[in-house]
Design a protein around this nucleic acid. Structure first.
Length: 583
RNA sequence: GGACCUGUGGUGCAGUCUGGAGUGCACGCCGCCCUGUCAAGGCGGAGGUCGCGGGUUCAAAUCCCGUCAGGUCCGCCA
């Protein structure tokens, strides 16, 4: 139907009789003897000149025939990639008429999210969205090529999986052939890929859809896509190497620039310096430890309470923050309290009569040593604001870590790109209602070899061989060395308070498999939505997903979720207890 | 489950604090004019349940209560 694409014309095509197909982007008529039509396809836009009037209106689908020519001197449009040419003496054939679109098919118009999703097919016509989806495809292709090159085999795993009551809430799928029973959609192919290791696949990967019925965020949808991988006879360094290779390949393909090798940081260091396990390294603003300054303090707010397990006094310097209004400072204090801190102290670094001083409600309680110690340790200078949290160590760090991002952060998709490996995650994270430790990653994570004996004595101190990949403050993905030995797995289940019977009921099929010869294995999975969003400069993954859901999990285009007919429900053996909402 | 922001012709906004006629801006749409524009230009025109419901008031886009929708975040996401 066409001889060329709008955006792929070349100087060598000048003089050729060509035929292009696409949508009318814009029409400019100059009376009955001259009209311009900007024709848009997925590759770009080009100006078509018609000697006469044009029946086609915006978003009509047309085929244009004419001769490509250089534009007359002085008529070039430097704002258009094809602005040096135009199609002359055009005949325009209308292939489909179109109603005026609900919003303009242009990048610069900012449209309400609900409207965009209701008319997603029009939204996706916009060059920006076209570029996003195509960039994502480039990322996918680069990832596949890298995995292929490293000897990984692509294997598909089931979407209809078995419930495993652990972790994220699962989407349930009723079984028609087994009324009353359910499949679930996998929150990840975790167990399947471990089975593939027992199967001798050696190196598996999959661009896998994962589904979790948890609340949505800018970086979280119900369904998301991961590059999922697992390899046998490898250690942590090997896995980090595989993932780095694939991610850096994708980065190079997407941005044209290969990032330097990805540095590593321990989880403890990330918490200490950035107050988070996903540090944004595009800016410094590191947390400062004031523990020494206030080690023997008389200031009650900064003193460790009796019997405190691990108390810390941490600080954050906000450059230029001395100008913050009292109301804004009050807001920060409220935020800190809302996040669980007992309080937040602030010190404005001021200067009066050539003397550097602190402006703070707490200043009069500080000794001179503490005053100079605070300034020296924090490095704050006149005009800065120092925020201080004195609390349980991890809480003090995380509260300030969030302030760091809130006060110094930038949109995630804004360059430069700063990757970092966060390694040596704790094995457990808090305790459940029964007092048992909760796995930070999953129960098949191998503890750090040096900490094995702490499993029984001090589980909270056990580090694991689990690791995260972080980019610009977003967690791209995580992985771990897996447990392949029954004895260690048993000790972990014991630490978790999972009995042999419970383990058998939940993961029996995996434990069974492991009895038949499980190779040491390790793996990783990272979010392609997030990676593609960051490469696209987007600040939500919806920008790189063709048909995403709203924050309430609805699809304005199809109306999903909807009620099922009584017949369909009966077929599935389902009886609902509430009427479906009308939308 | 919770906090905050937003909701006004098709689109994006102003108006809301401090109540007084659906007032305004830009784009789009429709008609006419226009032979080199390119976010074309000129003239004219149409288009409104101010998200929805209730309350206060002589009077509500504006104040109050509730509710719905979209967004950001907390919880949640092994």
């Amino acid at each position: 139907m066409r001889t060329h694409l709008c955006g792929q014309l070349e100087d060598g095509d000048v003089g050729r009789f060509i035929r292009l197909c696409g949508w009318v982007s814009r029409r400019r008529e100059h009376g009955e003897h001259l009209a311009f039509v900007d024709l848009r396809d997925h590759t770009g836009t080009i100006q078509c000149v018609v000697d006469g009037s044009v029946d086609a209106r915006s978003e009509y689908v047309v085929a244009v025939t004419g001769t490509l020519r250089r534009r007359p001197e002085g008529m070039e449009n430097p704002n258009l990639a094809t602005g040096g040419w135009e199609v002359g003496d055009c005949e325009i054939e209308v292939l489909a008429t179109a109603e005026p679109p609900p919003f303009a098919v242009e990048d610069r118009v900012d449209v309400d999210e609900a409207t965009r999703l209701r008319y997603r097919y029009i939204d996706l016509r916009r060059p920006r969205m076209q570029a996003n989806l195509r960039l994502r495809a480039v990322v996918n292709a680069a990832l596949r090529a890298a995995m292929d090159r490293m000897g990984f085999c692509e294997v598909e795993t089931p979407l209809l999986w078995s419930p495993t009551p652990e972790g994220a809430r699962e989407f349930a799928v009723p079984s028609r052939l087994h009324p009353g029973a359910f499949y679930v959609l996998p929150q990840s192919p975790q167990l399947a890929k471990q089975l593939l290791m027992v199967s001798g696949m050696d190196r598996y990967y999959q661009i896998a859809r994962c589904l979790r019925d948890e609340d949505l965020r800018a970086d979280r949808q119900f369904e998301f896509t991961q590059l999922d991988m697992e390899a046998s006879f490898v250690n942590q360094d090997d896995v980090l190497g595989f993932v780095s290779e694939s991610v850096l390949d994708a980065a190079e393909a997407a941005t044209g620039e290969r990032p330097p090798p990805i540095a590593r940081m321990t989880w403890a260091e990330a918490l200490e310096r950035y107050g988070t396990d996903k540090p944004d390294l595009r800016f410094a603003m590191e947390l400062v430890d004031l523990g020494e300054v206030f080690a023997t303090t008389e200031v009650r707010a900064f003193a460790a309470p009796q019997g405190a397990r691990r108390h810390a006094v941490k600080a954050l310097v906000v450059e230029g923050g001395a100008s913050f209004a009292r109301s804004r400072l009050d807001g920060l204090v409220e935020t800190a309290k809302a996040e669980g801190a007992k309080g937040l102290a602030w010190f404005k670094v001021t200067e009066g009569d050539g003397v550097v001083g602190l402006d703070s409600p707490l200043d009069r309680f500080l000794s001179e040593t503490e005053r100079t110690g605070l300034l020296a340790a924090s490095g704050a200078v006149v005009g800065d604001l120092v925020l201080v949290v004195s609390d349980e160590h991890r809480l003090a760090c995380t509260v300030l870590g969030r302030m760091r991002v809130a006060l110094g952060g930038r949109p995630v998709g804004e360059g430069p790109y700063r990757y970092v490996w966060v390694v040596e995650f704790p094995m457990f994270d808090g305790v459940d209602s029964a007092g048992h430790p909760v796995p930070a990653h999953h129960p098949f994570t191998m503890p750090h070899p040096d900490d094995l004996d702490l499993l029984e004595t001090d589980p909270a101190a056990v580090r694991s061989q689990a690791y995260d990949l972080v980019l610009n403050g977003w967690e791209l993905g995580s992985g771990s060395v897996r447990v392949h030995r029954a004895d260690i797995q048993g000790r972990i289940f014991a630490a978790l308070g999972i009995s042999a019977e419970q383990a058998e009921a939940r993961f029996g099929f995996l434990l069974d498999a492991f009895r038949y010869g499980a190779p040491p294995h390790a793996g990783f999975a990272f979010g392609i939505d997030r990676l593609a969003a960051i490469f696209s400069g987007a600040d939500t993954i919806r920008e790189v997903i063709a048909f995403p859901k709203t924050q309430s999990g609805a699809d304005p285009l199809t109306g999903a979720p909807k009620a099922l007919s009584a017949n369909a429900l009966a077929d599935l053996g389902i009886k609902t207890t509430v009427p479906a909402p009308e939308r």
